[in-house]
Amino acid sequence: MLSIKNLHVEVDGKEILRGLDLEIGTGEVHAIMGPNGSGKSTLSYVLAGREGYEVTAGEVLFEGRNLLEMEPEERAWAGIFLAMQYPVELPGVNNMSFLRESVNAVRRARGEEELDAVSFMKRVREKAELVKLPDKLLKRSVNAGFSGGEKKRNEILQMALLEPKLTILDEIDSGLDIDALRVVAEGVNALRGPERSFLMITHYQRLLDYIEPDHIHVLAQGRIIRSGGKELALELEEKGYGWILEEEAAA
């Protein structure tokens, strides 16, 4: 589904990703872990097409299409969803109208019929129930004045509505207590299926207890330096990143 080859990315003239390779198959759940400053968030923004990230080398294919040539909304239409670490506040923009606008834009692009107000409302309520997002937050401005947990649940609600093929969860666990984390994880797990892939970016093993990945990668100094199964996470939890970095340096 997603194929990243030798990706080099600069931000403000500084190289952050230095030859990153990653393959994510359909229906797979991958987790990327790594120390602060290793380039985890950069990877998620590059995949979603945010400005200010200059790709100096390498390629990214999504279902065979050159992702890097696509506008951010085209990527969303194609089925890429980025749940952000710090979701942006949109003062004055009503959350419900925003959700509808977004869902219908994606449906239009996929050649599906737009949802009318009633069936849309029904669907939102259903999904909001799933992520336990209070009704009143649907009537407020997008993320404005939401708590950290409410913002994350609003992200998962959007994911549930847009039904993306590839979901990138950028530190979705940061700033969440255990209960909120469980709710978020349930939302993600409910969407898991043979057609959908996930890329989780996280700092902590904790998240992986709730959303179990098929593959784990360690990102350091702009490259994937180690890949493995679930056992790798446990090893990291126990020993930290130091040993891999040392081994890498030795090699």
Binding site: E51, A76, V88, G92, F98, A105
Partner: peptide, 26 residues
């Protein structure tokens, strides 16, 4: 803000309109 809307599938022009409307809505 513009990026957030575009990442949710809303094209740039529409994103601009939505944000301006949100600004005025207050």
């Amino acid at each position: 803000q513009v990026f957030y809307l575009r990442a949710r599938g809303i094209d740039e022009r529409r994103a601009l309109h939505m944000l301006c409307e949100g600004f005025a809505a207050e």
